[in-house]
């Protein structure tokens, strides 16, 4: 039991030959491309639209409809082992004609590789990409936040609802470029909505269904709950 009181210290103090070093004098364009790109090209062919290296990081642009396949391959293939999802986010450019980009940052901890995947969603098309929640549980809140901030729908996400903004937020998606910095509504309208909000409605439908307060609920909410509605604060 005595060793239970000590953490296991990994003796990696002395760097081995394969140990990575801090990047220095990284070129703007070009440089060594991530070795996984070749495997992606041979496996997926046309689904890989483009791959380039900017500031030493490889970006692979993938056909939005095949993102899930590509990420599943990267996760499952023993030669890739991208087991860690760092981030899911999106980029909208100031040039409103440019497509919206959904960005996945993947890491392979065993291979010490880093890869950026992008899917371009042109304006005017439905903003939807497949959810990677089934592959990485860590995608849960990252995708919810991205949906909240950009309005991108992650199809297949089990619980896609707003995360940082509240459930009844009506002003749209704050990180979109057409959303003004001070909000879409005037201060007086925001104040009016805040005063009109029902402070008793602190629990979502899902939460209210936990305890058997069911009989005490108003009839319309009971009806909505019975219909399987799971959200709505």
């Amino acid at each position: 039991m005595s060793e239970r009181f000590q953490p296991v210290v990994v003796g990696r103090g002395v760097p081995d030959a394969a140990a990575p070093v801090s990047p220095k004098h990284v070129p703007h364009q070009g440089g060594a491309m991530n070795a996984s790109v070749d495997a992606l090209r041979t496996t997926f062919g046309d689904a890989i639209v483009r791959a380039d290296v900017v500031w030493g990081e490889t970006t692979v642009i993938v056909d939005p409809s095949r993102v899930l396949e590509v990420i599943r391959f990267l996760h499952d293939d023993p030669a890739q082992q991208y087991d860690y999802l760092s981030d899911v986010t999106a980029v909208e450019y100031r040039d409103l004609e440019r497509p919206l980009e959904v960005v996945w940052h993947l890491r392979s901890l065993p291979m010490r590789r880093f890869l950026r995947l992008k899917a371009l969603l042109p304006k005017g098309t439905p903003l939807a990409v497949p959810s990677v929640y089934e592959i990485y549980r860590g995608a849960n809140w990252l995708e919810r936040e991205c949906f909240d901030m950009f309005g991108i729908e992650f199809t297949g996400h089990p619980d896609l609802r707003r995360l940082l903004m509240w459930e009844g937020y009506k002003e749209g998606h704050p990180l979109r470029k057409d959303f003004p910095l001070r909000g879409r509504f005037s201060r007086s309208e925001q104040l009016r909505q805040a005063l009109a909000a029902n402070p008793e409605a602190r629990y979502s439908m899902e939460e209210l269904s936990i305890a058997d307060a069911f009989a005490d609920l108003p009839a319309d909410i009971r009806h909505r709950l019975a219909g399987g509605e799971a959200t709505g604060e």
Binding site: V8, V10, R12, G13, P15, P20, S22, L109
Partner: peptide
């Protein structure tokens, strides 16, 4: 899991410092 950004994707020359990564 001994994943520490300072060791696996180093920056600021962290690879030249002698330190250990404790894991549970």
């Amino acid at each position: 899991v001994a994943y520490d950004v300072r060791k696996d994707f180093p920056y600021l020359d962290y690879e030249t410092y002698d330190f250990d990564v404790p894991v549970g």
